[in-house]
C-alpha cells in the first residue's frame, strides 16, 4: 500500500473508532434545519426563499465543528512529527487529511440533503442545483479550512479564532451557491455560478496543500 493510501486508511479507521464525535456535526446540521420550518411557519413560498441559504449556512457552520479535529490528535501525540520525517511530501499528506475530513464530516451532510430539501419545500430543479453547489463547494470548505486549522493547531482552544478566520473567507462561496439555487428556482441557467465555484475549487486544490504544509511546519516551531 502506498504511504498516502495507508494514511487515508488509518484516518478513516480512527474516524470510525470515534463515531460519537463524528456524529456531532451531522446532528447539528439536522437540528438547525429542522428548527427553521417550525420557527418561520410551514408556508412553502417562504421556506423556498430561505431554504438554500439555510442549508448552506448550516453546512458551513457544521463543517467548522469537525474541522478542529483535523490535525489536533496527530499534533499532540507527535504522529505529525513522524509524518513530517517520512519520505512522503508534506503537501500530499495534507491532501490526504483534507480528503478524510471531507469524507467523514461533509459527505454525511450531502447524503442527508434530499431529506432536508423536502423539509424546506425545495422544488426538484432547486434541489439539483443545491446538490451541484454542495458537491463543488464543500471540498473548498475542507481545503481552505485546513489551512486555518494548521495555523492554529499549536494554540490551545483555537476554536473561536478558527471561525473568525474562516467565515469571512467563505462568504463568496455562499453568495455564488445560493445565487445558483435562486436561478434554478426561476428556471434560469446557473452554469455561470457553478463555473465560479469550480474555479475557486481548482485554485484551492492547486495551492491549499502547499499552504497547509507550510502552516504545519510553522506550527512545529
Amino acid at each position: 500500500m502506498t504511504p498516502v493510501m495507508a494514511l487515508l486508511k488509518r484516518d478513516l479507521t480512527l474516524a470510525f473508532h470515534q463515531r460519537a464525535e463524528l456524529l456531532q456535526p451531522v446532528i447539528f446540521f439536522l437540528l438547525v434545519i429542522t428548527l427553521f420550518p417550525l420557527a418561520v411557519g410551514p408556508n412553502a413560498s417562504t421556506l423556498q426563499i430561505i431554504g438554500p441559504g439555510v442549508i448552506w449556512v448550516a453546512a458551513i457552520l457544521s463543517s467548522l465543528l469537525g474541522l478542529e479535529r483535523l490535525f489536533r490528535d496527530d499534533y499532540q501525540d507527535g504522529s505529525l512529527e513522524h509524518l513530517m520525517l517520512s519520505t512522503t511530501p508534506l503537501p500530499l499528506i495534507a491532501l490526504a487529511k483534507v480528503t478524510t475530513h471531507w469524507l467523514t464530516s461533509i459527505v454525511p451532510l450531502i447524503v442527508l440533503s434530499p431529506l432536508l430539501a423536502i423539509f424546506l419545500h425545495l422544488s426538484e430543479a432547486m434541489y439539483w442545483a443545491l446538490l451541484a453547489t454542495l458537491l463543488l463547494g464543500t471540498p473548498l470548505l475542507s481545503l481552505v479550512g485546513a489551512i486555518a486549522v494548521a495555523l492554529t493547531v499549536g494554540l490551545n482552544r483555537g476554536g473561536v479564532l478558527l471561525a473568525l478566520l474562516l467565515v469571512p473567507i467563505f462568504i463568496p462561496l455562499l453568495i455564488f451557491a445560493t445565487s445558483a439555487v435562486d436561478s434554478a428556482a426561476m428556471e434560469l441557467p446557473y452554469t455561470a455560478q457553478l463555473a465560479f465555484i469550480a474555479a475557486m475549487l481548482l485554485f484551492a486544490l492547486a495551492l491549499a496543500p502547499f499552504a497547509i504544509a507550510y502552516a504545519l511546519k510553522v506550527s512545529q516551531n
Binding site: 488509518r10 479507521t13 480512527l14 501525540d77 507527535g78 512529527e81
Partner: peptide
C-alpha cells in the same frame, strides 16, 4: 529521512490504535 530514526519527547503513537 530514509537514513534517520528520530525518537522525540512525543512518542508519535496514536493512543486509540
Amino acid at each position: 529521512h530514509q537514513q534517520l530514526v528520530y525518537f522525540g519527547h512525543k512518542l508519535g503513537l496514536n493512543l486509540r490504535l
